[in-house]
Protein backbone atom coordinates (compact mmCIF):
# COMPACT_ATOMS: atom_id res chain seq x y z
CA UNK A 1 0.00 0.00 0.00
CA UNK A 2 2.80 2.35 1.03
CA UNK A 3 4.72 1.49 -2.15
CA UNK A 4 1.67 2.31 -4.26
CA UNK A 5 1.26 5.67 -2.57
CA UNK A 6 4.94 6.46 -3.05
CA UNK A 7 4.77 5.48 -6.72
CA UNK A 8 1.70 7.67 -7.28
CA UNK A 9 3.44 10.60 -5.59
CA UNK A 10 6.59 10.19 -7.74
CA UNK A 11 4.40 9.93 -10.87
CA UNK A 12 2.53 13.14 -10.01
CA UNK A 13 5.80 15.00 -9.37
CA UNK A 14 7.22 13.75 -12.70
CA UNK A 15 4.08 14.74 -14.59
CA UNK A 16 4.22 18.21 -13.09
CA UNK A 17 7.84 18.48 -14.17
CA UNK A 18 6.92 17.43 -17.71
CA UNK A 19 4.14 20.02 -17.88
CA UNK A 20 6.46 22.75 -16.73
CA UNK A 21 9.11 21.90 -19.30
CA UNK A 22 6.42 21.71 -22.01
CA UNK A 23 5.18 25.19 -21.08
CA UNK A 24 8.74 26.46 -21.12
CA UNK A 25 9.31 25.03 -24.61
CA UNK A 26 6.14 26.64 -25.89
CA UNK A 27 7.29 30.04 -24.63
CA UNK A 28 10.77 29.55 -25.98
CA UNK A 29 9.37 28.51 -29.37
CA UNK A 30 8.51 32.10 -30.27
CA UNK A 31 11.86 33.83 -30.17
CA UNK A 32 11.19 35.80 -33.36
CA UNK A 33 8.80 38.72 -33.39
CA UNK A 34 5.65 38.71 -35.48
CA UNK A 35 4.22 41.59 -37.45
CA UNK A 36 0.74 41.15 -38.94
CA UNK A 37 -0.37 43.18 -41.96
CA UNK A 38 -3.79 43.70 -43.54
CA UNK A 39 -2.97 44.11 -47.23
CA UNK A 40 -0.23 43.24 -49.69
CA UNK A 41 1.40 46.70 -50.09
CA UNK A 42 1.82 46.97 -46.30
CA UNK A 43 3.12 43.39 -46.19
CA UNK A 44 5.63 44.23 -48.92
CA UNK A 45 6.82 47.48 -47.29
CA UNK A 46 7.16 45.77 -43.90
CA UNK A 47 9.02 42.81 -45.33
CA UNK A 48 11.42 45.11 -47.16
CA UNK A 49 12.38 46.83 -43.91
CA UNK A 50 11.97 44.15 -41.23
CA UNK A 51 15.10 42.70 -39.63
CA UNK A 52 15.75 38.95 -39.96
CA UNK A 53 14.29 38.07 -36.56
CA UNK A 54 10.93 39.61 -37.48
CA UNK A 55 8.38 37.43 -39.20
CA UNK A 56 5.95 39.39 -41.37
CA UNK A 57 2.53 37.78 -41.80
CA UNK A 58 -0.21 38.55 -44.30
CA UNK A 59 -2.96 36.02 -43.51
CA UNK A 60 -5.48 36.87 -46.26
CA UNK A 61 -6.03 34.09 -48.85
CA UNK A 62 -4.86 35.05 -52.34
CA UNK A 63 -8.32 34.83 -53.93
CA UNK A 64 -9.97 37.22 -51.42
CA UNK A 65 -10.03 41.00 -51.53
CA UNK A 66 -8.20 41.94 -48.28
CA UNK A 67 -10.37 45.04 -47.88
CA UNK A 68 -13.46 42.89 -47.36
CA UNK A 69 -11.87 39.83 -45.78
CA UNK A 70 -13.25 38.82 -42.39
CA UNK A 71 -10.96 36.77 -40.14
CA UNK A 72 -12.27 33.91 -38.02
CA UNK A 73 -11.74 33.66 -34.24
CA UNK A 74 -8.35 31.89 -34.52
CA UNK A 75 -7.12 34.46 -37.03
CA UNK A 76 -8.13 37.36 -34.75
CA UNK A 77 -6.36 35.63 -31.85
CA UNK A 78 -3.22 35.41 -34.02
CA UNK A 79 -3.50 39.13 -34.81
CA UNK A 80 -3.93 39.87 -31.08
CA UNK A 81 -0.80 37.91 -30.19
CA UNK A 82 1.37 39.68 -32.79
CA UNK A 83 4.02 42.18 -31.68
CA UNK A 84 2.79 44.76 -34.20
CA UNK A 85 -0.34 45.05 -36.31
CA UNK A 86 0.14 47.21 -39.39
CA UNK A 87 -3.16 48.76 -40.46
CA UNK A 88 -3.88 50.72 -43.60
CA UNK A 89 -6.26 53.21 -41.97
CA UNK A 90 -8.85 54.92 -44.21
CA UNK A 91 -11.54 52.49 -42.95
CA UNK A 92 -9.67 49.59 -44.55
CA UNK A 93 -10.29 46.12 -43.05
CA UNK A 94 -13.70 46.90 -41.57
CA UNK A 95 -13.55 43.75 -39.44
CA UNK A 96 -11.33 45.79 -37.13
CA UNK A 97 -14.32 47.72 -35.78
CA UNK A 98 -15.88 44.56 -34.31
CA UNK A 99 -12.65 42.82 -33.26
CA UNK A 100 -10.74 43.16 -29.99
CA UNK A 101 -7.12 43.98 -30.69
CA UNK A 102 -4.47 45.47 -28.39
CA UNK A 103 -4.51 49.18 -29.17
CA UNK A 104 -0.83 49.66 -28.30
CA UNK A 105 0.21 47.31 -31.08
CA UNK A 106 -1.88 48.95 -33.81
CA UNK A 107 -0.09 51.15 -36.35
CA UNK A 108 -2.32 53.28 -38.54
CA UNK A 109 -0.06 53.91 -41.52
CA UNK A 110 -2.26 56.59 -43.09
CA UNK A 111 -2.44 58.71 -39.93
CA UNK A 112 0.01 61.25 -41.41
CA UNK A 113 -2.37 62.14 -44.24
CA UNK A 114 -5.66 61.46 -42.44
CA UNK A 115 -7.08 64.87 -43.35
CA UNK A 116 -6.45 64.27 -47.05
CA UNK A 117 -8.42 61.03 -47.26
CA UNK A 118 -11.16 60.92 -49.89
CA UNK A 119 -14.75 60.22 -48.84
CA UNK A 120 -16.94 58.51 -51.42
CA UNK A 121 -20.41 57.18 -52.05
CA UNK A 122 -20.97 53.89 -53.79
CA UNK A 123 -23.72 51.30 -54.25
CA UNK A 124 -23.51 47.76 -52.86
CA UNK A 125 -22.26 45.15 -55.28
CA UNK A 126 -21.00 41.59 -55.27
CA UNK A 127 -17.90 39.88 -56.57
CA UNK A 128 -15.51 37.18 -55.38
CA UNK A 129 -15.83 35.06 -52.22
CA UNK A 130 -16.27 38.11 -49.96
CA UNK A 131 -19.93 38.49 -50.94
CA UNK A 132 -21.87 41.74 -51.17
CA UNK A 133 -19.94 44.85 -50.19
CA UNK A 134 -19.87 48.58 -50.63
CA UNK A 135 -17.07 51.07 -51.27
CA UNK A 136 -19.03 53.85 -49.57
CA UNK A 137 -17.14 55.70 -46.85
CA UNK A 138 -13.45 56.38 -47.26
CA UNK A 139 -11.42 55.48 -50.35
CA UNK A 140 -8.80 53.04 -49.15
CA UNK A 141 -6.31 52.32 -51.94
CA UNK A 142 -4.02 54.93 -50.41
CA UNK A 143 -0.81 53.27 -51.67
CA UNK A 144 -1.65 54.04 -55.32
CA UNK A 145 -0.44 57.58 -54.64
CA UNK A 146 3.29 56.87 -54.33
CA UNK A 147 3.86 59.85 -52.04
CA UNK A 148 1.24 58.44 -49.66
CA UNK A 149 2.85 55.02 -50.01
CA UNK A 150 6.15 56.59 -48.87
CA UNK A 151 4.39 58.05 -45.80
CA UNK A 152 2.88 54.64 -45.03
CA UNK A 153 6.31 53.03 -45.35
CA UNK A 154 7.69 55.71 -43.02
CA UNK A 155 5.05 54.89 -40.38
CA UNK A 156 6.05 51.22 -40.63
CA UNK A 157 9.72 52.15 -40.37
CA UNK A 158 9.10 54.15 -37.18
CA UNK A 159 7.10 51.32 -35.62
CA UNK A 160 9.77 48.75 -36.49
CA UNK A 161 12.51 50.94 -34.97
CA UNK A 162 10.47 51.30 -31.76
CA UNK A 163 10.05 47.52 -31.64
CA UNK A 164 13.65 46.66 -32.58
CA UNK A 165 15.81 49.69 -31.69
CA UNK A 166 19.06 47.76 -32.09
CA UNK A 167 18.17 47.20 -35.78
CA UNK A 168 17.64 50.90 -36.42
CA UNK A 169 20.44 51.20 -38.96
CA UNK A 170 19.22 48.26 -41.06
CA UNK A 171 15.62 49.51 -40.96
CA UNK A 172 16.62 53.08 -41.88
CA UNK A 173 18.76 51.84 -44.79
CA UNK A 174 15.98 49.60 -46.12
CA UNK A 175 13.49 52.44 -45.81
CA UNK A 176 15.70 54.84 -47.78
CA UNK A 177 16.07 52.25 -50.53
CA UNK A 178 12.30 51.66 -50.63
CA UNK A 179 11.60 55.40 -50.54
CA UNK A 180 13.89 55.89 -53.52
CA UNK A 181 12.11 53.18 -55.51
CA UNK A 182 8.64 54.53 -54.64
CA UNK A 183 9.84 58.06 -55.42
CA UNK A 184 11.05 56.80 -58.83
CA UNK A 185 7.64 55.33 -59.54
CA UNK A 186 5.98 58.58 -58.44
CA UNK A 187 8.12 60.50 -60.87
CA UNK A 188 7.37 57.97 -63.61
CA UNK A 189 3.59 58.24 -63.10
CA UNK A 190 3.74 62.03 -62.95
CA UNK A 191 5.69 62.18 -66.21
CA UNK A 192 3.40 59.67 -67.92
CA UNK A 193 0.21 61.43 -66.94
CA UNK A 194 1.29 65.05 -67.26
CA UNK A 195 -0.98 67.11 -69.52
CA UNK A 196 -3.37 64.16 -69.75
CA UNK A 197 -6.68 65.92 -69.32
CA UNK A 198 -8.60 63.45 -71.47
CA UNK A 199 -11.42 61.64 -69.67
CA UNK A 200 -10.71 58.10 -68.46
CA UNK A 201 -13.13 55.46 -67.14
CA UNK A 202 -12.17 53.00 -64.40
CA UNK A 203 -13.95 49.66 -64.14
CA UNK A 204 -13.99 49.83 -60.32
CA UNK A 205 -13.90 52.69 -57.76
CA UNK A 206 -10.39 52.00 -56.44
CA UNK A 207 -8.26 54.64 -58.24
CA UNK A 208 -9.30 57.78 -56.31
CA UNK A 209 -5.85 58.56 -54.86
CA UNK A 210 -4.13 57.49 -58.06
CA UNK A 211 -6.30 59.90 -60.03
CA UNK A 212 -5.80 62.74 -57.56
CA UNK A 213 -2.04 62.28 -57.33
CA UNK A 214 -1.45 62.09 -61.07
CA UNK A 215 -4.16 64.48 -62.25
CA UNK A 216 -6.42 62.00 -64.06
CA UNK A 217 -9.91 62.96 -65.17
CA UNK A 218 -11.40 59.68 -63.98
CA UNK A 219 -14.91 58.34 -63.45
CA UNK A 220 -15.67 54.85 -62.15
CA UNK A 221 -18.07 52.02 -62.91
CA UNK A 222 -18.76 49.04 -60.63
CA UNK A 223 -17.38 46.36 -62.93
CA UNK A 224 -15.14 43.35 -62.51
CA UNK A 225 -12.80 42.04 -65.25
CA UNK A 226 -14.49 38.62 -65.24
CA UNK A 227 -18.11 39.80 -65.03
CA UNK A 228 -20.57 39.51 -67.90
CA UNK A 229 -21.38 42.91 -69.34
CA UNK A 230 -25.18 42.62 -69.31
CA UNK A 231 -27.77 45.08 -70.57
CA UNK A 232 -27.59 47.17 -67.37
CA UNK A 233 -23.79 47.37 -67.49
CA UNK A 234 -23.98 48.35 -71.17
CA UNK A 235 -26.47 51.08 -70.36
CA UNK A 236 -24.23 52.29 -67.49
CA UNK A 237 -21.16 52.76 -69.66
CA UNK A 238 -23.07 54.29 -72.55
CA UNK A 239 -24.70 56.83 -70.22
CA UNK A 240 -21.33 57.60 -68.67
CA UNK A 241 -19.62 58.05 -72.04
CA UNK A 242 -22.18 60.65 -73.06
CA UNK A 243 -21.05 62.98 -70.25
CA UNK A 244 -17.52 61.63 -69.93
CA UNK A 245 -16.24 60.82 -73.44
CA UNK A 246 -13.32 58.60 -72.43
CA UNK A 247 -11.05 56.77 -74.84
CA UNK A 248 -9.52 54.50 -72.18
CA UNK A 249 -10.99 52.04 -69.68
CA UNK A 250 -8.82 50.95 -66.77
CA UNK A 251 -9.32 47.42 -65.46
CA UNK A 252 -8.10 46.04 -62.08
CA UNK A 253 -7.10 42.76 -63.73
CA UNK A 254 -7.03 41.22 -67.18
CA UNK A 255 -10.60 41.36 -68.59
CA UNK A 256 -12.23 38.38 -70.35
CA UNK A 257 -11.93 38.38 -74.14
CA UNK A 258 -15.67 39.22 -74.46
CA UNK A 259 -15.35 42.20 -72.15
CA UNK A 260 -12.17 43.37 -73.82
CA UNK A 261 -13.81 43.11 -77.28
CA UNK A 262 -16.94 44.90 -76.11
CA UNK A 263 -14.92 47.86 -74.83
CA UNK A 264 -12.82 47.94 -78.01
CA UNK A 265 -16.00 47.98 -80.10
CA UNK A 266 -17.14 51.02 -78.14
CA UNK A 267 -13.96 52.73 -79.32
CA UNK A 268 -12.07 52.55 -76.00
CA UNK A 269 -8.68 51.08 -75.18
CA UNK A 270 -8.37 48.46 -72.42
CA UNK A 271 -5.59 49.06 -69.92
CA UNK A 272 -4.86 46.98 -66.83
CA UNK A 273 -3.64 48.92 -63.81
CA UNK A 274 -3.40 46.49 -60.92
CA UNK A 275 -4.05 48.07 -57.50
CA UNK A 276 -1.99 45.25 -55.99
CA UNK A 277 -4.23 44.62 -53.00
CA UNK A 278 -3.28 40.98 -52.63
CA UNK A 279 -0.16 38.91 -53.34
CA UNK A 280 0.64 39.21 -57.07
CA UNK A 281 0.98 36.05 -59.16
CA UNK A 282 4.49 37.14 -60.09
CA UNK A 283 6.91 39.87 -59.07
CA UNK A 284 6.28 42.24 -56.19
CA UNK A 285 4.69 45.62 -55.49
CA UNK A 286 7.42 47.61 -57.24
CA UNK A 287 7.53 45.43 -60.37
CA UNK A 288 3.71 45.38 -60.54
CA UNK A 289 3.63 49.20 -60.41
CA UNK A 290 6.37 49.38 -63.05
CA UNK A 291 4.30 47.10 -65.28
CA UNK A 292 1.24 49.30 -64.68
CA UNK A 293 3.29 52.29 -65.80
CA UNK A 294 4.65 50.46 -68.83
CA UNK A 295 1.15 49.39 -69.92
CA UNK A 296 -0.16 52.92 -69.62
CA UNK A 297 2.73 54.41 -71.56
CA UNK A 298 2.23 51.79 -74.27
CA UNK A 299 -1.47 52.57 -74.55
CA UNK A 300 -0.79 56.27 -75.05
Amino acid sequence: MLKKLLFTFVLIVMMNGCNESKEQTQTEDRTSKEVYTVNYPLYYFTQRMAPKNVQVVFPVPQDVDPAFWRPNTEEILSFAQADLIILNGADYAKWRSTASLPESKLINTSKAFEKELIHIESADHTHGPGGEHSHAGTAFTTWLDMQQAIKQAEAIKNALILMEPEEKEHIEQSYLQLKQELGGLDKGFKNAFSDLQRPIVASHPVYQYFARAYGLNLKSLLWEPEMKIDAKAQADIKTLLVVHPAKVLIWEGKPTTENSDYIRNLGLKNIVIKPCMNLPEHGDFITQMQENLKRFKKAY
Binding site: T73, I76, L77, A80, T98, A99, S100, L101, P102, E103, S104
Partner: peptide, 24 residues
Protein backbone atom coordinates in the same frame (compact mmCIF):
# COMPACT_ATOMS: atom_id res chain seq x y z
CA UNK B 1 -11.12 47.38 -21.60
CA UNK B 2 -8.60 46.24 -24.21
CA UNK B 3 -6.74 42.89 -24.40
CA UNK B 4 -3.62 44.54 -22.90
CA UNK B 5 -5.31 44.53 -19.49
CA UNK B 6 -4.88 40.76 -19.07
CA UNK B 7 -1.18 40.79 -19.92
CA UNK B 8 -0.64 43.77 -17.63
CA UNK B 9 -2.38 42.12 -14.65
CA UNK B 10 -0.90 38.74 -15.58
CA UNK B 11 -4.37 37.18 -15.68
CA UNK B 12 -4.37 33.68 -17.11
CA UNK B 13 -7.27 31.94 -18.81
CA UNK B 14 -8.41 28.85 -16.94
CA UNK B 15 -11.07 27.76 -19.37
CA UNK B 16 -11.90 28.94 -22.92
CA UNK B 17 -10.14 31.93 -24.47
CA UNK B 18 -9.94 35.73 -24.41
CA UNK B 19 -12.66 37.80 -26.06
CA UNK B 20 -11.88 38.62 -29.67
CA UNK B 21 -15.08 40.28 -30.86
CA UNK B 22 -17.78 42.62 -29.66
CA UNK B 23 -20.49 40.83 -27.69
CA UNK B 24 -18.04 38.40 -26.07
Amino acid sequence: TTPEYFAFRNLQVQEGRHFVRIGE
